[in-house]
Amino acid sequence: MRSWYKAAALAAFTFGMGTGMGAAQAQIVIGQTAGFSGVVAAGVQETTDGAKLYLDSINARGGVNGQKIELVSLDDKFDPKLAGENARKLIEEQNVTAMFLTRGTPHNEAIVPHLNKHGVALIAPSTGAMVLHKPLQKNVYNVRATYQREAEKAITHLASLGISRIAVVLADDSFGADGLIGAKRGFELSKMQPVVLEKVDRAKPDFGPVATKIAQANAQAVLILASGNTVVDGYNAYRKAGSGAQLVTLSNNASSGFVKSLGENARGVIVTQVFPSERAGNSPLVREALELAKAKGKDVSPAMLEGYAAAKVLVEALRRAGPKPTRDKLGPALESMQKFDIGGLEVSYSPDDHSGLDFADLSIIGTDGKFRR
């Protein structure tokens, strides 16, 4: 038990520094578990940095109803079992008011039972898993669009360009299965079939045999439904096998860290997006984030925008929950949001719908390593 408290204190110090205070000064404690190490580390850090941009600005102005927010973030190494255990500790031992910005589909599935047991809201899980949308999860409040919507848009976009020989490779887990449903819908709408459809082990993928099939099928594009370095490994494998197919992946990989991991192969990769372009000067959300990031000497990535938008919803929920927000007040506060403007995008919840946004778009990585729309 003592080791847990030491770890929690270290996490509060490390990630609490981003919100401008230590754990002892926190008046509202929010919990997060995500893969700060492992295959999704770059994206997780950027998303969390985006949230901190907004939380820092709120805390600098005195917090919410005079109370500052402390984000306690624990590393689950992108392991679903550890994500569930971290959530339990944060809820039962740290007594967090809410969970926030948790990453991964099977990981969030492991977290939900702890939310339901204690009546704790999870705001803005960093996943587009349909299982968190339908059937309604009473304690989960999504902000971003679903993976199914992204995958469908990716396939129909490729078809609109005249690309018909499309392969699909997916991690053999709930995330991959979820994205595949959307991809299949895209194929149906486009009256096509995938030339290759293969699963790989989530933890230890072997892309050799899959890459050979992709090359032999003369695929023009490959949609890889997986996370971080797994996608990079798959891309490298089919390039090595002689395929020149276009790489397409989802917004869970929309980070500058992902671009860096692709190296010289980054140019031309298509990545779906669930928020406006980080250079969209006509977007109030983007302008706000850019201004705050500039003051800290940082650039803004799509992953950071997701975190920034999530933090705006979190803060508004806390504000609506009153002077002393509690777990049981947050649900009604969130469900009172109707067309809440986070900066050019409107978030709505109701007792029957916790979906948040449905925005989906496509980007391509340019020669400068930036996402272009």
Rank of each mutant, 00 (worst) to 15 (best):
N252W: 04
A241M: 03
G297T: 10
A266K: 13
R239P: 01
I270P: 00
S277Q: 11
L318C: 10
A254F: 09
L247T: 11
K298I: 00
A311L: 05
L314G: 09
R239N: 13
L247P: 02
V259M: 10
A293G: 10
K312T: 07
D328L: 08
Y235P: 00
A289H: 01
S251L: 03
R287W: 00
Y238W: 14
A254L: 08
V300G: 08
L292Q: 14
V248P: 11
V274P: 01
A245G: 09
Y238C: 10
G322F: 07
A310H: 06
L247D: 07
N236E: 12
V259D: 03
S251T: 11
E306C: 01
G268L: 04
R279A: 13
A295N: 12
S255V: 05
E264G: 00
G281K: 13
Y235E: 12
E306P: 01
P302W: 02
E278R: 02
S261N: 15
K298Y: 12
P302S: 03
V300R: 07
P325A: 10
P284E: 10
P302E: 08
A254H: 06
A309R: 03
R320C: 07
D328S: 15
A245S: 12
N253R: 04
E291N: 13
K329G: 12
K329S: 15
P284N: 12
S256D: 14
A280I: 00
D328G: 00
A303D: 11
A321Q: 06
Y308C: 01
K240H: 12
Y238R: 07
T272D: 12
N265T: 14
P284M: 09
S283I: 06
L292W: 09
R267Q: 15
P276F: 02
R320N: 13
G244E: 13
P284H: 08
R279H: 13
S301M: 07
A310W: 06
Y238E: 09
A254N: 09
A237C: 10
A321F: 02
R327Y: 04
T249H: 03
I270H: 05
G244D: 15
V271I: 15
V259K: 04
G281N: 14
Q246N: 01
E306A: 02
G297V: 11
A303K: 04
A309K: 04
V269T: 15
A310V: 07
A245C: 10
A237R: 08
Y238S: 11
A254M: 06
E306I: 12
G322K: 09
S243H: 05
G257Y: 07
T326G: 12
L314F: 04
G322Y: 08
A237V: 08
T249C: 13
R287D: 02
D299T: 15
L292E: 12
F258R: 08
N253D: 13
V269K: 04
F258N: 04
P323Y: 05
S255E: 09
A310G: 13
D328A: 14
G307W: 09
L250W: 05
A289I: 05
E264C: 00
N282Q: 14
G307C: 10
A321C: 07
M304P: 02
A241H: 05
R279F: 11
Y308R: 03
F258I: 06
L290I: 10
S277E: 09
L305C: 06
Y308W: 07
G263Y: 02
T249F: 07
K312F: 03
I270K: 07
P325D: 10
K298C: 00
A321R: 08
V300H: 09
K329H: 07
